[in-house]
Design a binder for these strands. Structure first.
Lengths: 107, 107
DNA sequence: TTGACAGGTAAGCATCTCCTTACGCATTAT
DNA sequence: ATAATGCGTAAGGAGATGCTTACCTGTCAA
């Protein structure tokens, strides 16, 4: 009877759901277009989308008989915040930035 | 029979496991010291630690009859890399700076 | 109106997850 | 040697997950 909202970490724990979010980075998409990218049945895709909806990671807009799903990237912030706790183990952002830009200049 | 390696995303999907990693940020710890911080039984803690081990997020060192667990923060990189995909949506200072500098480089 | 299309919901199932208690095996202390 | 400590493994159960097929509703097209 836990009925706990799985939350963002649970939502992104499934590779299919991460790929769905990745697809939506490039723009809103109707379910069928999302489903084309997966082997599983369309209802299974719908169910994954419901999990993403529940975590607030996507919203849906109805357009006629389509439902377009839209990414809500701000909802990934808990992940980002948690990860930030570990950033000091990498190098910090500005070190990475400098390296990135230097690599760019080498070309 | 799937026996699929759950991977890092699965490992961090449980709040208790995230808290265990958080504890290990401050240094290696034996199991009992970790377990003090949780309501669940010690075997349950052991099982969570095994998941973290399986994901490569911790290692264990035997010291006498203790086993100290050590964080392996580099293993969080898949999460970081995946998240980086979404960085352009946050538009914090760092992102704006990077974009500014990259634009400057185009010349 | 009839049908095709988009897509959600229901039910059922196999499997995984997470917890518990019971127990085993080293290692250290007495 | 015996007991206590540290911690893992085994077994089992409740519930969650992830999939499937079957079905339903709402919209557009002929």
């Amino acid at each position: 009877m836990m009925h706990t909202e799985p939350g963002v970490f649970g939502a992104i724990s499934h590779p299919a759901r991460r790929r769905m979010l990745d697809l939506l980075v490039d723009g809103d998409r109707p379910v069928n277009e999302i489903a084309e990218n997966f082997e599983m049945s369309r209802p299974a895709v719908s169910q994954h989308l419901r999990v993403l909806l529940g975590a607030g990671l996507v919203t849906e807009q109805r357009h006629g008989r389509e439902r377009r799903y839209r990414l809500v990237p701000e909802q990934l912030e808990p992940v980002r915040d948690w990860l930030a706790h570990y950033e000091r183990f990498w190098d910090d952002n500005f070190t990475r930035l400098r390296r990135h830009l230097e690599k760019g200049e080498e070309r």
